[in-house]
Structure formats: structure tokens, C-alpha cells
Simulated assay, not measured.
Amino acid sequence: MRCAAILRVIVILLTLITTWYFAEKMYSNRDNMKSLRSIFEKKKAQFSCGNEKPCPDDYFAFKIISGAANVVGPSMCFENSIIMSSIKNNIGRGLNIALINASTGVVIKTSSFDMYSGDVKPLLEFIKPVAEGTLVFVASYDDPGTKLNDEARAVFASFGSSYSKKIGFRDSWLFVGGKGISTKSPFEQHIKNNKETNKYDGWPEVLEMEGCIPKKTN
């Protein structure tokens, strides 16, 4: 009986020791995972505009998001600064445009233009005088195409747009180009308004685009 009691005590002790060992290992692994996760999130947060990848030193980082139907407005981030958004109260339905110096990264000016019920003249007065070496950011909201005439479409095409001549009623459109660009811009997205494929009833889904733009050197 005495030997049996001693054996039971030994088994209990071994069970406790084994349980403690695996519990300690599990918590240690969990702490390591938390540590790795925090390091990853910290590194990710350090990337300009919250982008997935960092940009080289001689590039500008950006992220732009189109409007969601006619409810949530678009946003533009450039070099980790929000330059257009609902919070900044400088966006509107239609076309939202930011002009930025391609050498210094300084925002020249921003504006929005109603392309549904508004006049195209203010838009032309804004984009036609754009100087050489200026980056042009465009984000749609609600309806970018109803009042967009051939002259305005041609100006955007001269900035490197491939889709400006196709933009229609309630399309989603994002574009980053520039005055003096010699090729079509790689930074452009477009979705046609199509009742059979629209995500938001009468509007297509939101577009999001991020990337790195080389700084213009003289």
C-alpha cells in the first residue's frame, strides 16, 4: 500500500511538471508571436500613407481611394499627409483633383468639380493652365462623367490618361498623371457603371490605388 501511495504521488508530480512545461512553452510561443506581430505592424505603420511597401528615397508615396457610391467621399494621401478627404472638407461629388509639384512634392492646389449638374468651364479653367512638371491626382465620387466634354477629356489624356475618353455616368475612376508626361500613366483604374455588376446598386465598387512616383529632377 505504501509503495502504491508513493507511486501515485510520483505520477501526480510528473503530471504537474509536464503540464507546467507545456503551459510555459505555449505562453512563451504566444508572447513571441505577439512580439513578432507588433514588430510587423510597427514596420507596416511606418510606410508612408499606410502602403504595403516602402518607396525609395527618390520617390513620392501616395494612396488614393474613390468615393463609395454617393455616400462616402474619396481620399488622397501623399507623402503620409492626407491632402483631400471628407474630414478635411475639401472634396465633392464629381471629380476631385489635386495638383502637386513633381520636384518638391508641395501641393499646389486642390478642388472638386460637379460633373452631374455643374458646368465644365471651372474644370477647364483649373486643368488647362497646369504647368510643366505638375502631378495631377484625380478621384471620382458619385458621377464623374456626365458633364465631362471632349475638351476636358483630351486634357486628361495629355496628362497620360488611358480612360478619360471613356468615363461615363457614375463610373469609378482613379488617375495619377502629369503635365509633360511622354507615355501613358501606369497609375489609373476605371470601372464602368453596370447594373449587372455594380456593387452598390447604381454604382460600381470603390477603387483603391497606391504606389511610388519618381521625383522630377531638373
Rank of each mutant, 00 (worst) to 15 (best):
Arg2Ile: 03
Cys3Met: 14
Ala5Asp: 09
Leu7Ile: 06
Val9Asp: 14
Val9Glu: 12
Leu16Gln: 03
Ile17Tyr: 01
Thr18Met: 07
Thr18Phe: 12
Trp20Tyr: 01
Trp20Ala: 10
Tyr21Val: 15
Phe22Arg: 03
Phe22Cys: 01
Ala23Val: 11
Ala23Gln: 11
Tyr27Gln: 02
Asn29Val: 04
Asn29Thr: 00
Asn32Ser: 01
Lys34Gly: 11
Ser35Asp: 08
Leu36His: 04
Ile39Tyr: 06
Phe40Thr: 00
Lys42Val: 11
Lys43Pro: 09
Lys44Gly: 12
Lys44Arg: 04
Cys49Lys: 05
Gly50Glu: 07
Gly50Cys: 08
Glu52Leu: 14
Ala61Leu: 14
Lys63Gln: 15
Ile65Ser: 07
Ser66Phe: 11
Ser66Ile: 14
Gly67Leu: 04
Gly67Lys: 09
Ala68Phe: 01
Ala68Val: 07
Ala69Gln: 08
Asn70Phe: 10
Val71Arg: 04
Pro74Arg: 09
Met76His: 11
Met76Ile: 13
Asn80Lys: 07
Ser81Phe: 09
Ile82Phe: 02
Met84Ser: 03
Ser85Ile: 07
Ser86Lys: 13
Ile87Arg: 06
Ile87His: 04
Ile87Glu: 15
Ile91Thr: 12
Ile91Phe: 05
Gly94Phe: 15
Gly94Asn: 06
Leu95His: 15
Leu95Ile: 12
Ile97Arg: 10
Gly105Asn: 15
Gly105Trp: 11
Gly105Glu: 14
Gly105His: 15
Val106Met: 08
Val106Ser: 14
Lys109Thr: 12
Thr110Lys: 15
Ser111Gln: 09
Phe113Trp: 06
Asp114Phe: 10
Met115Trp: 05
Tyr116Gly: 12
Tyr116Ile: 07
Tyr116Asn: 15
Phe126Lys: 06
Lys128Gly: 01
Lys128Pro: 02
Lys128Leu: 04
Pro129Ala: 01
Ala131Cys: 00
Glu132Leu: 00
Gly133Cys: 05
Gly133Ala: 08
Gly133Glu: 00
Gly133Ile: 00
Tyr141Asp: 14
Leu148Ala: 13
Leu148Ile: 00
Asn149Lys: 01
Ala154Met: 09
Val155Phe: 08
Ser158Ala: 07
Lys165Phe: 15
Lys165Cys: 13
Lys166Val: 05
Gly168His: 05
Phe169Ile: 04
Ser172Thr: 09
Ser172Pro: 04
Trp173Ile: 08
Trp173Gln: 02
Phe175His: 03
Val176Phe: 15
Gly177His: 13
Ser182Cys: 03
Ser185Met: 01
Gln189Glu: 08
Lys192Ala: 15
Asn193Phe: 03
Glu196Ile: 01
Thr197Lys: 03
Pro204Thr: 01
Pro204Phe: 00
Met209Lys: 05
Cys212Val: 05
Cys212Leu: 11
Cys212Thr: 03
Ile213Asn: 09
Pro214Tyr: 02
Pro214Trp: 03
Pro214Phe: 01
Lys215Cys: 00
Lys215Phe: 01
Lys216Gln: 05
Lys216Leu: 02
Lys216Ile: 00
Lys216Trp: 01
